[in-house]
Design a protein around this nucleic acid. Structure first.
Lengths: 235, 235, 235, 235
DNA sequence: TATGAATGAGAATTCATTCAT
DNA sequence: TATGAATGAATTCTCATTCAT
């Protein structure tokens, strides 16, 4: 069961620019900055909501770290909750888009699943904000996610892909039949997500640093291993 | 790979009694009112902190639902945070005690691991407060857990047990060698924990109810399956 | 030892204006409401802290009497204590400035000291808030005064002036040598300060009103008399 | 003007005994301790009120430092204020008794006044609680002192003594005529009291320690000097 | 758009006092 | 007398939101 070093994917979160570039082309007395304010607020809000959750986040803190003032925040967003929902939607939509665009069709089934596990791990590793927002949203019983229209049926395309891969794997004799694609998808997520989401509490139990590069590599390999062995035809 | 219906373990959290039971055997003059107040506050606090997290929890709500005065809360506990830590410690210590008392030594290695996975699933299923407190505490970067002296080296005994089981399994020819017990422990936890911790967000993706008895049974079986197949000698 | 009626100095503390003067020259739209709020809070706080001390003062009372919202108080000042310190600093700095600006150099030494005693008495008489804040701060062991950077070496310039006057008095033969300027400064303060600071308890002992104009004049003359006689060449 | 080393007077404040002397005669299950509780509370209360003033004092703190519980405090005293008044009355009455018992009649007038100044200084030095209670009470506008029946006309006997001494001094040619005994009494108090009451704020201005033995001796001598020079026949 | 100031409804915590035993 | 528990009314401070300019 040899490991393939897959290119790690995931777009880095856009970061707020430093304001006040004296010689910038944004001349004529702040003609442009308006265009940046909204994204800056969103970026700052993502950090704050990820760090503290909805209840723990402070509008003041978001305003300050976004480099603008609170009133602007209410100019662009109706309320703290609305801002939260937009942050959530954006980061969630990114993940959806990413999952939808995964091109696994040209790979052999087993290899495709391996890639999927690796991609999942890598994506979560690269998007700590996503993890923390999901932690927070689960504490909220997903009430804001449920409320949003933009994010219906997120995982389904991927589950469909998995179904097809399982069928193909059975067909080419590399995988056992009878595997539930939803359970598999949940397990693939679980094996990576839990590692990052509960890194803090796990760290209190296991002394060694779970987030060192070596530890992460080991975990990634393990996750792949667990999933692939689950699929192989029985011994 | 047949399923064994294991007795589900885990003591339900003691719940606050309604006060003022007129015909109670506690005879005249309410025999020691003080003895109950502290536990009642703890129970109410566990519910509130589990429901809302530390930041979202309201001291007022805890006082009211514990049936006592807000000031009592500060009489027994120094602050909201201290109360939170004590709740966390208690529920965490319960889990530790439970894990420590798991008696797997008399079982065959493979059977022992199966039991362990089942126990883990069952315990989490029976202790939704624990799950939610852990969700919240991971949002807090486990800062309160870290601060507590009472909960050093929680999981380690279990990891040690797993090590022994892996060795025994290799010895009796049922398991493959080279498995990392810490990774295994994390995966066992992940496969069950994630299912409950992220039930809310998963539910937005998959229509069918994840928490129906049938769904839970299916998940439990799946988790056992994933783990045991990971251990078996290679195909 | 004839008495000179010195002009009484000391600027009365600026008092909060009543808000909403309909026909004010501040024309349409209340020309910069913000500019007044902070000073108004400081003025109200000075009254409250002077009346009750730090511990006895009520933030609510300050907010109400300043005519603004309680939250404004925390908008401009970090805490009740910080507000207290700023009040203290302002009133203390006023006194320092006043002492520094006393121009005694052009007077003959004995006359200069007389003026100094009179000025001291008059200043304390005109600044009951100062007295009460000092009473309170001494009850606090001056802990807030010590904490403030703004008020290092307050009295020292005046002590230096006194030294010079004593030297000049010895030189022109009107004063005896060997007088400690610090002791003298403390005594000058004591003779006036105590009269005002302990007026309340003294009044329980001596029936007649200590704060009537006649009583104050008598006390002022007495203080001058005590100090000057202390300086004169021995009988 | 030579200094006489007068014996320093003033009874040390009675201090709370350590509780729980195992082999104490207070056998038969706490038969005696009752006798001590009340004074212990008073002693603890004196410390607390002196340290923090009425508003800043905490009933909890008094109970704890008195070694008993809050309910006892309310058993012996009706309220925090009543306890405060009793503390005040006791310490005030001590001073009154002390002043009344000063035997100056057998001394020559000038010597008697010197003794009086020294006694005053020494008494205040030895009774820091008295000073602090007076500071606090002046912050309260002496409202509790006024309310108390026990402490009418406290200073008057001493003023009467001073009058007699002034008359005698004029008669024997050592003192000038025309001195107001009330002003003199206030000045004698002021010169010592202010030094102790404002030691904290003065210390922020003058670096050197005002409460070192040397500094206190110097101040005491100075106070005597100021008063006596005021009385002597003019140069 | 942008901003500093303003606001009212809460939220945590404190505190003098009383109760039950 | 003595005590631990209980209480309600403050009290300080916070926070999301809005206003005026």
């Amino acid at each position: 069961m040899n490991k393939v070093k897959t290119a790690r994917i995931g777009d880095p979160p856009a970061r707020k620019q430093d304001r006040e570039e004296p010689g910038s082309p944004a001349s004529e007395k702040a003609a442009k900055p308006a265009e940046n304010t909204r994204p800056q607020i969103l970026a700052a809000a993502a950090e704050e909501f990820a760090a503290k959750g909805l209840a723990g986040a402070r509008v003041d803190a978001i305003a300050k770290s976004s480099g603008c003032n609170k009133a602007m925040l209410y100019y662009f967003f109706k309320s703290k909750e609305d801002l939260y929902v937009e942050v959530l939607e954006n980061i969630y939509a990114d993940m959806r888009r990413y999952e939808r665009d995964l091109d696994l069709a040209h790979l052999k089934p087993l290899e495709a699943i391996r890639r999927l596990v690796e991609f999942k791990f890598d994506y979560l590793e690269r998007h700590p904000l996503l993890i923390r927002l999901l932690i927070g949203e689960n504490l909220n019983d997903a009430s804001y996610l449920k409320r949003s229209k933009r994010m219906r049926s997120m995982h389904l395309p991927l589950v469909h892909t998995i179904s097809k891969l399982l069928e193909a794997g059975v067909a080419d004799g590399t995988m056992r039949p009878g595997i539930d694609p939803v359970q598999l998808y949940i397990s693939i997520s679980a094996l990576s997500y839990f590692y990052f989401s509960n890194a803090a509490t796990l760290a209190t139990a296991f002394e060694h640093d779970l987030l060192s590069p070596a530890a992460k590599t080991a975990r990634r390999d393990h996750a792949v291993d667990v999933v692939l062995r689950y699929l192989l035809v029985a011994p």
